[in-house]
Write a protein that binds this DNA or RNA. Structure first.
Length: 697
RNA sequence: GCCGCUAUAGCUCAAUUGGCAGAGCACCUGAUUUGUAAUCUGGAGGUUACCGGUUCAAUUCCGGUUAGCGGCUCCA
C-alpha cells in the first residue's frame, strides 16, 4: 500500500507503487492530459516516475491554480525542447557532438561541438526550427532508460562521445550508481541523449518554441579548453506565451540604455576616442551632476572630506598597493618617461624585457590609475594622525582606467574608463561596525530616493582554497564578521558568497539586473585590513602608541557610468523631474502667446529650473508629440486664454490628457518644490499628483 | 581575447541574380497663427565604416582592419 498525499491535503492509496501519471489519472482525465510532470516530495520528476513509498505529490501543469505560468512547467518544456533542438541539429549537421543543454530562467541552450569545417549560422535557424517542428509533430514520448555505470560507460565509449562520457564520469563521482538516458521515442530506435531528466511526457507537449541565438562557450567554462557552440532557444506551453515573450523582448530593447542614450542624447561613445570610453553629452552630464550633487550633500552631512587626485601615479605606488603585479593584464600599459625610454632604446631592450624589468621594479614609469585608494592612502599618510582624528573620510569622484577585454565592453555598463563615487575611510577597529553601517545607509538613501527596489545584496567572502588573497586569516575573519553584522543590521535579505571577495578584503555588493536580465554590481562597501599594512599606515592611540588603522572602501553608486546606464533602464529614460535634463517645456499655442511663454520661461529659470520654450511654427499637437518623445516631465501649454488669467495648462509625461489649469505662480512654485525635494514622478507632492487629485475631487 | 552576427544620410531602415543609392523622421526655405500626441510646400544632405582583391562593372562576392550586437571567459 502506497499513500500519496496531494497538495490540498487529500490522500490517495494505491495497491502497488503508482507512477506520477497514474496518480494524475486517478484524480481526473483532464488533469492527466494537462500534466507535464510532477513534484514528488518537492523533487521534480517525469510523469512516468514510479513512486515506491508514501509521498507527497503535486502535478505540474502549464498553469498554476491561480492562472500564473508555472515555473516548473517551463523548466520541463525547455529542458525537453533542448533535446528536440539537439536532435534537429544533429540531423542537419552530421558529426555534431553534444555537450550539455540545461533550461534557464527565460530560455535554454545546448552546447555542442561542431566537426571541423561544419559551422552553424543564424541563417540555419529556419531549417532547424522546421526540423524541430517535425519532431514535435510526431509527438514522440520521452522515454527514460537506465544502465548500470559500467555498461553505460561502455556504451558512451563505443559511441565516441567525449563530452557525454565526461558528464557521466562526473555524475558517477557525485555518487550516481546508474546512468540515465532519454530516448525521444523508443530506446534503441529513436534519437537519445544521456540526461538525468526530467522531461515532459512527449514532444507534442511543446506548444511553442524559437531558436534565439548563437554564441560560443568553453568546455567546463575553461578558456583553455575546447571551444563549443552554444545555441539558445526558448519554449512555452502556448503560442500566446511565446508571442508575449517576443513582445516583452522588444519592449525591453526599447528601454535599453544604449538605445535611449542615443535617442535622448545622454552619452556618446566615439570610435575615434576609443572603445569603452564614454563621452557624457550635455543631457547625460545633467543627470550625472544632479546625482553627484545629491550624494555630495549627504557626504558633507556624514563628515566626509572632498579630495582631488591626479589620473596617474608612479608604478611604485601600485607595486606597493599590489595592483600592478596582480592586475597587470587588465590595466592600460604603463607610461614611461622620455629619458628612461631613450636609455632603454640605447640598451636595445626588447618589449618582453621591458615588461619583465618593469614588473621587477628595475624600470620606473607611471600608470593610469586603476583604483583611487593608493592616492587616498598617501593623503592619509601625508600627516601624523591621532586617534582623535579618526575616522578620516576622504571622498572623490575619481576616474579610473582598466583594460577590459574587448569582447566584454558595451554601453555604459562595461567600459574602460569610469568614475567611481569613491571614498576611503580610515578608522579604528572599534569604529568599523558603525562606519560600515553609515556607508550602507547612503546606499539605502540612494536606492530609496530613486525607487530602486529590485536588487540583491551579496556579501563576498574569501574562498578558503584560493591563493589570490593577501593578509592573514585572523584579520580576514574579523573583516568578514564586520560585513556580515552590518548587513544583518541593515535588515535586507542577503547572500554570502565565498570566493567573491576582493583580493584585499571582503565586500558587500549591491547587484541589480538590466533589461536583458544581466546582473551588474553597483554600490559596494569593502573592509580592508591589508592595504594599511602594505602602506604601513599608523595613528597614535590614546595609549601614545602607534596603531594600525583599518580601511573601508565604499562607492554607493559604484561607477557613475554603470549607475546611470542602469538608471536609464530603470526609468526607461523617463527620469524624475530632478534628474531630467529638461524639466519643463513651455508650449505657446501660437506666436501670439510667445511673450507670455517667455515670461513663464524666465520665471522658471529664475528658480534654477531647466526649461525651454518651443517657438516652432507648429501646431500645439506637434509640439506635444515632440516633447513627449523627449520624455520631458512637464509641458506648460499657454495660449491667449491662459495669458489673460495668468495661468498655465499643465500636461505631465505619461498622462495623455490635459491635467488642468494652474496659476502661473503656483506652477512655478510647485515645480521648484518637486525639484528641491527630489520627488519621483507622480509621487505625493508633485505637481502631477496635486492636479490629478484636484481633478478627481 | 574567443565564437557567431552586423556596419547604407544625423536617426530608423529600403535597394531583384553584381548594373545610375532611396524613403520616413530630424535639419534648412516659404506659406499658415493654429487650444492638447505630427498643417502644407520646396530644398539640402552619401568616397555605402576603413584598407585591399575578384570583375567590363562591387552597397552587393572574397580577404583584412576598426567598431557595434549576443554569448563565453574576466571583472580590484
Amino acid at each position: 500500500m502506497v499513500r500519496i498525499t496531494l497538495k490540498d491535503g487529500t490522500c490517495k492509496e494505491f495497491e502497488a507503487a503508482p507512477t506520477a501519471g497514474e496518480v494524475a489519472a486517478s484524480i481526473g482525465a483532464g488533469l492527466a492530459k494537462a500534466a507535464l510532470g510532477a513534484k514528488v516530495n518537492g523533487e521534480l520528476v517525469d510523469l512516468a516516475h514510479r513512486i515506491p513509498t508514501d509521498s507527497t505529490l503535486e502535478i505540474v501543469t502549464a498553469k498554476n491554480r491561480d492562472g500564473t505560468v508555472s515555473a516548473e512547467s517551463l523548466y520541463l518544456l525547455r529542458h525537453s525542447c533542448a533535446h528536440v533542438m539537439a536532435e534537429a541539429i544533429t540531423r542537419l549537421f552530421p558529426g555534431v557532438q553534444l555537450v550539455y543543454g540545461p533550461p534557464l530562467e527565460t530560455n535554454f541552450y545546448y552546447d555542442m561541438s561542431f566537426p571541423p569545417g561544419s559551422v552553424m549560422s543564424t541563417d540555419d535557424f529556419a531549417r532547424v526550427e522546421a526540423e524541430m517542428g517535425k519532431i514535435i509533430e510526431e509527438n514522440r514520448a520521452f522515454t527514460r532508460f537506465n544502465l548500470p555505470v559500467e555498461e553505460g560507460m561502455e556504451k558512451l565509449t563505443r559511441e565516441g562521445s567525449k563530452y557525454k562520457l565526461d558528464n557521466a564520469r562526473r555524475a558517477v563521482e557525485a555518487g550516481s550508481n546508474e546512468l540515465s538516458w532519454y530516448a525521444t521515442g523508443t530506446p534503441g530506435r529513436d534519437w537519445e541523449d544521456l540526461c538525468r531528466g526530467p522531461h515532459v511526457p512527449s514532444t507534442g507537449k511543446i506548444g511553442a518554441f524559437k531558436v534565439l541565438s548563437l554564441a560560443s562557450s568553453y568546455w567546463k567554462g575553461d578558456e583553455k579548453s575546447d571551444r563549443l557552440t552554444r545555441v539558445y532557444g526558448t519554449a512555452f506551453a502556448t503560442k500566446e506565451e511565446l508571442a508575449q515573450f517576443t513582445k516583452q523582448s522588444e519592449e525591453a530593447k526599447k528601454r535599453d540604455h544604449r538605445v535611449l542614450g542615443k535617442q535622448l542624447k545622454l552619452f556618446h561613445i566615439d570610435e575615434m576616442v576609443g572603445q569603452g570610453l564614454v563621452l557624457w553629452t550635455p543631457n547625460g552630464g545633467i543627470v550625472r551632476s544632479e546625482l553627484q550633487n545629491f550624494i555630495g550633500t549627504e557626504l558633507r552631512r556624514q563628515g566626509y572630506f572632498q579630495v582631488f587626485t591626479p589620473h596617474i601615479g608612479k608604478l611604485e605606488l601600485y607595486r606597493t598597493s599590489g595592483h600592478f603585479p596582480y592586475y597587470r593584464e587588465s590595466q592600460y600599459p604603463p607610461i614611461i618617461e622620455h629619458d628612461a625610454m631613450a636609455k632603454l632604446a640605447d640598451e636595445g631592450c626588447t618589449c618582453g624585457e621591458l615588461s619583465n624589468r618593469m614588473a621587477a621594479g628595475e624600470v620606473d614609469g607611471y600608470m593610469l590609475k586603476p583604483m583611487n585608494c593608493p592616492h587616498h592612502i598617501r593623503i592619509f599618510a601625508s600627516e601624523p594622525r591621532s586617534y582623535r582624528d579618526l575616522p578620516v573620510r576622504l571622498a572623490e569622484f575619481g576616474t579610473v582606467y582598466r583594460w577590459e577585454q574587448s569582447g566584454e565592453i558595451g554601453g555604459m555598463t562595461r567600459v574602460r574608463g569610469f568614475t567611481q563615487d569613491d571614498a576611503h575611510l580610515f578608522v579604528r577597529e572599534d569604529q568599523i561596525a558603525e562606519e560600515v553601517l553609515g556607508c550602507l545607509s547612503i546606499v539605502k538613501l540612494i536606492f530609496g530616493t530613486l525607487g530602486i527596489e529590485d536588487y540583491r545584496v551579496r556579501v563576498g567572502l574569501r574562498d578558503p582554497d584560493s591563493q589570490k588573497y593577501v593578509g592573514d586569516s585572523e584579520n580576514w575573519d574579523k573583516a568578514e564578521a564586520a560585513c556580515r553584522n552590518a548587513v544583518a543590521t541593515l535588515g535586507v535579505p542577503f547572500s554570502e558568497e565565498p570566493g567573491e571577495a576582493a583580493f584585499y578584503g571582503p565586500k558587500i555588493d549591491f547587484v541589480v539586473k538590466d533589461v536583458i536580465g544581466r546582473s551588474w554590481q553597483l554600490g559596494t562597501v569593502q573592509v580592508d585590513y591589508n592595504l594599511p599594512i602594505r602602506f604601513d599606515l599608523s595613528y597614535v592611540g590614546a595609549d601614545n602608541k602607534s596603531h594600525r588603522p583599518v580601511m573601508i572602501h565604499r562607492a554607493p553608486f559604484g561607477s557613475m557610468e554603470r549607475f546611470v546606464g542602469v538608471l536609464i533602464e530603470h526609468f526607461a529614460g523617463a527620469f524624475p523631474l530632478w534628474l531630467s535634463p529638461e524639466q519643463v517645456r513651455v508650449l505657446p499655442i501660437s506666436e501670439k502667446s510667445a511673450e507670455y511663454a517667455n515670461e513663464l520661461l524666465a520665471a522658471l529659470k529664475a528658480r534654477g529650473i531647466r526649461a525651454s520654450v518651443d517657438h516652432a511654427n507648429d501646431r500645439v499637437q506637434a509640439k506635444i508629440k515632440v516633447a513627449a518623445e523627449a520624455k520631458i516631465p512637464y509641458m506648460a501649454v499657454v495660449g491667449p486664454r491662459d495669458a489673460e488669467q495668468r495661468a498655465v495648462s499643465v500636461r505631465a509625461r505619461g498622462v495623455e490628457a490635459n491635467l488642468g489649469e494652474m496659476s502661473f505662480d503656483a506652477f512655478v512654485d510647485g515645480i521648484a518644490a518637486e525639484f528641491e525635494q527630489r520627488l519621483l514622478s507622480g509621487a505625493p507632492g508633485t505637481v502631477q499628483a496635486t492636479l490629478g487629485s484636484a481633478s478627481k475631487a
